[in-house]
Nucleic acid binder design. Structure first.
Length: 493
RNA sequence: GCCGCGUUCGUCUAGGGGUCCAGGACGCCGCCCUUUCACGGCGGUAGCACGGGUUCAAAUCCCGUACGCGGUACCA
């Protein structure tokens, strides 16, 4: 049977980094095995539905380079791919379960259940459940006479469908990542399958969909591990073969705990995929970084693109423990990918950013040189703009820390250099010559290299760091360079 | 509380009885290169949670403890 996996997010917000990683592992697994990657939207909780979430999920996956084989908008033989559009299916199967004695109707109100739990807690049961024991004293089709049940149903009274969880049974299954996991059914609630608003719960919809969509492997976050026995019980009740289960370790916050939106924000970690898009991260870098958060190929390699990751990825190399998100390592990956990209590849993106800042780009050759000069020192594309702004416009302010290196003798030394390069014929205004003039100047003044370099860099760029200086001067041009030197002498002398 | 799952350098991880006084990467520190800042090169720092077994031999297998995380809803 060919491999079919699904990524099944709920559209309750923007796609966050944890969800993206789950999607990635599913995608990699599908590609590795020549299978299909399916997107299914689990929109069964109408109260948490967020309007643009679905589009955000699709856009995010596209940005990272994951290609959806089947899904909403995309189509496929197993649609519809939104759970809200499959309601009839769930009802059909829920009904079947009731008829076969695996589930039952329950008419208790939320308050009544709450009251039952409170009462039991007081009498010494620390974790009361709606289970094989307590259901006997509740209002449901197991305790009510048949005609009464029918009457309530016909009258349109609100009800839920609950799974009839057997007592004293052990549910065992083999998790691809964790090995054999077992649970006792006595710890389980009679899980609600159909809510009173007519929507299925995750558990029912999930099992029905995975089966009818012929999903072979369910790869999801560890937060689902505790629900897995409920799902196994459901597969058994239907008489279906469960798919292979694999529960992924969670992505943790540096301060501990699952990386949540709130925690990420206070720790300065972008949490949503769209933040990485708008933050100008390299998608290859994010993918590479995320792939290694809980998985490794087993050798010493670190850099792999999507294609290479697909070839290497197997579930048995996924680790079991949670993985802490390390933003510095992400930045290292990002830097790496920028270096690996050619100037031509970088060009369109940088151009767009430079133009967005309102800078005039003299020519493509000019921009090419700017990118060349900055290529080795930038770790994110937007830094081409922040670090390279001075190529397009004279600095308006000078970096405070760098200004501290401006000494009393700076104006004289700078002036000497200024006059030397002013005397240069235009065709000689080039990096090598400009560098020779620097040497001449410091020799004349008997000072170190930095004595001229720092003030000169400050004059030209307004910063204390940046690309190689003399090629930058050449690019900016003679007149502009002289003007900038004059300006700083006037301002700081 | 109960149930489940975890635990190798600060972080991500390799390693699955002897080849490990534990390897790689990020970070951090130092040196070299560059008469600047970076890049790069070289080197260093630092870890098998703890306690019992099993075994000639344990980071590796078993048990327990501790700690962490997840779940415990008509949320997913």
């Amino acid at each position: 049977m060919s491999v079919r996996v699904r990524f099944a997010p709920s559209p309750t917000g923007f796609l966050h980094i944890g969800g993206l990683r789950t999607a990635l592992y599913n995608y990699l697994f599908a590609r590795h095995n020549g299978g299909k990657f399916i997107l299914r939207i689990e929109d069964t909780d109408q109260s948490r539905y967020v309007e643009n979430a679905e589009q955000d999920i699709i856009d995010s996956l596209e940005w990272t380079g994951m290609v959806i084989d089947e899904g909403p908008g995309k189509g496929g033989d197993f649609g519809p791919y939104r759970q809200s559009e499959r309601k009839d299916l769930y009802h059909k199967y829920a009904k079947q379960l009731v008829e076969e004695g695996h589930a039952y109707y329950a008419f208790d109100t939320v308050d009544e259940i709450e009251e039952m739990r409170e009462r039991l807690k007081k009498s010494g049961n620390p974790s009361p459940k709606y289970d094989a024991i307590t259901r006997q004293s509740m209002k449901n089709s197991l305790t009510l006479p048949q005609d009464e049940v029918k009457k309530r149903l016909d009258a349109g009274e609100e009800y839920v469908v609950r799974l009839k969880v057997p007592r004293r049974e052990t549910v065992k299954f083999e998790d691809e990542i964790r090995g054999v996991v077992s649970f006792d059914t006595d710890g389980l609630d009679d899980q609600v399958l159909v809510k009173s608003d007519g929507m299925p719960t995750y558990h029912l919809a999930n099992v029905v969909d995975d089966h009818t969509m012929e999903i072979t492997h369910v790869i999801r976050g560890e937060e689902w591990l505790s629900s897995a026995p409920k799902h196994i019980l459901l597969y058994n009740a239907f008489g279906w073969e469960p798919p292979t289960l694999a529960h992924l370790p969670l992505i943790m916050s540096p301060s501990g705990g699952k990386l949540s939106k709130r925690k990420a924000e206070t720790e300065g970690i972008p949490i949503n995929t769209k933040d990485y898009i708008s933050g100008h991260y390299e998608s290859d870098a994010l993918v590479n970084f995320l792939a290694y958060l809980g998985w490794s190929p087993g050798d010493d390699s670190e850099i792999h693109d999507m294609k290479s990751l697909s070839e290497l990825f197997t579930l048995d190399r996924v680790s079991k423990g949670g993985a802490v998100f390390n933003h510095k390592k992400l930045m290292w990956y990002n830097e790496n990918y920028i270096r690996e990209h050619s100037i031509a590849e970088l060009m369109p993106g940088v151009k767009e950013l430079v133009e967005a800042e309102g800078f005039e780009i003299p020519s493509d050759e000019f921009l090419t040189k700017v990118i060349e000069l900055l290529h080795e020192r930038v770790s994110k594309v937007d830094e081409f703009v922040s670090m390279g702004a001075f190529f397009f416009e004279a600095p308006e302010t000078y970096d405070e820390k760098a200004v501290k290196k401006w000494k009393d003798d700076s104006p004289v030394i700078l002036k000497t250099y200024r006059d030397k390069i002013e005397a240069l014929p235009d065709e000689k205004f080039e990096a090598v010559t400009l560098k020779d003039k620097i040497k001449e100047t410091i020799e004349e003044h008997e000072v170190g290299f930095g004595k001229l370099m720092m003030p000169l860099r400050l004059a030209v760029s307004g910063q204390g760091f940046g690309p190689e200086l003399t090629p930058a001067l050449e690019l900016i041009g003679k007149q502009e360079s002289l003007d900038r030197i004059d300006t700083i002498i006037e301002k700081l002398a």
